[in-house]
Simulated assay, not measured.
Amino acid sequence: MITYILRGLFILLATSVTALYVLPFQAEQEVSVLNVMMLIGGTLILCVGVIALDAAYPEKDLSAVSGVFLGIIAGLLATYAASFLVDLIPVLIEFKEPEAIERLLRGVKVLLGVVFCYVGISLVLQTKDDFRFIIPYVEFAKELRGSRPTLLDTSVIVDGRIVDIIETHALQGPLVVPRFVLNELQTIADASEKMKRARGRRGLDMLQSLQESHAIEVQIEDRDAEGAGVDQKLISLAQHLRARVMTNDYNLNKIAQLRGVEVINLNDLAKALRPVALPGEELVVKLVKPGENPSQGVGYLDDGTMVVVENGREHIGERVDLVVTSTLQTSAGRMIFGKFASTEDEEEAEEAVTEPVAVAEEGHRVRTTRRNPRRG
């Protein structure tokens, strides 16, 4: 709304200045009414053209605008300094037609101004990332309010675990999907290879699930970024937006860290959330109360994880050695199930003893079947 008001005031002010400047000449009959109307109409056309050009580029880079401004100032200063040298030419050299030479030198000054302004603008724009001026070329940093946005890589969207993570409300701040990532997903979904096409369609389904979720805001970023591939564009856009990148790609993870971009790796996140104890590991725990089943005993680890031990009711109040048989992760917490290590050793010993017996019985049976034909 403020932009439209500003544009209206701009048109009104420009036409008013033109009218106030031209009307006194028309009152003295030096300029006809038709010429006055043509001048005011030309001013309106010029204003509309400027507004249309401004509206055609709504997203402007402040560093580029500052670079153009500084380049123009540097070019004008260089032109002003060079004009003194140009003015010395008629003084040092006598020409037969001084008026013609003077007109020629004025054209040379204008040409030098154009050349110096172009060189100044080009120099500043090409080197603006290598140095910074305090005044007048000031680098403005975008002030971030609230949580930082997170850019999603193609691999994370196809993976699908991001949907479950979002539903837990573990992430804060908007999720941003760049347009070039969406285009890559569409390209994969249209691939001729069946497996690749399935991955692309899965990624589009996951993205639709993210957009339908009310747990977080998902934005599609239309602006492009510098870089040859999707990974380079993703890092450049993250630096511009001061955002994080979520990915499963190992190479992208390393390159982003080298360029100072914060990365969330889902594989590292899954590694951090892996169970404390895996099946087959040995634990020492103190049993403190009976379990739900008559033979169970219950103990707790230092972090509060419940451990259920088979045949542990008779050992309540003792510290026992056990072997983990399985783990269960629920919304209420993690549970570990185990049995006594000695019980497992006894079962293995029984299996080792019964196996030769079975083999011997089988061998005896085989020998018996071989003897029967001879007896017959």
Rank of each mutant, 00 (worst) to 15 (best):
L6K: 09
I11P: 04
S16Y: 15
L20D: 09
V22N: 03
Q26D: 14
A27Y: 11
Q29C: 07
V31K: 01
N35I: 07
M37Y: 15
G42M: 07
I45W: 12
V50K: 00
I51E: 06
D54M: 05
P58Q: 12
E59A: 09
D61M: 12
A64N: 13
I72L: 12
I72T: 10
I89G: 03
V91L: 13
L92D: 10
L105C: 03
G107M: 06
V108E: 00
V110Y: 09
C117V: 13
Y118R: 05
V119Q: 05
V119G: 00
S122Y: 06
V124F: 03
L125V: 07
K128F: 07
I135V: 15
R145Q: 04
S155M: 09
D159N: 13
D159I: 11
V163S: 02
I166E: 12
L175D: 00
R179D: 15
V181P: 00
E184Y: 09
Q186I: 12
T187C: 00
E193M: 06
R197W: 08
R197P: 08
G200Q: 03
L210M: 10
H214F: 05
I216E: 01
E226Y: 11
G227T: 14
A228C: 04
Q232F: 02
L234W: 01
S236N: 10
L237T: 06
L237N: 04
H240R: 10
A243N: 04
V245C: 07
V245I: 15
T247A: 04
Y250T: 13
N251C: 04
Q257C: 00
L258A: 04
R259H: 13
I264T: 11
N265W: 03
L269F: 12
L273Q: 08
P275T: 11
E281A: 05
E282S: 14
K289I: 10
P290I: 03
E292V: 06
N293L: 09
P294V: 13
G299L: 06
L301Q: 05
L301W: 05
M306C: 04
V307N: 00
R319W: 05
V323Q: 01
V324M: 14
S326V: 05
Q329V: 15
A332T: 14
A332D: 08
G333L: 03
M335G: 03
M335S: 01
G338K: 01
E344K: 09
T354A: 15
V359G: 10
H364L: 13
R367P: 00
R367H: 04
R370K: 13
P373E: 14
G376C: 08
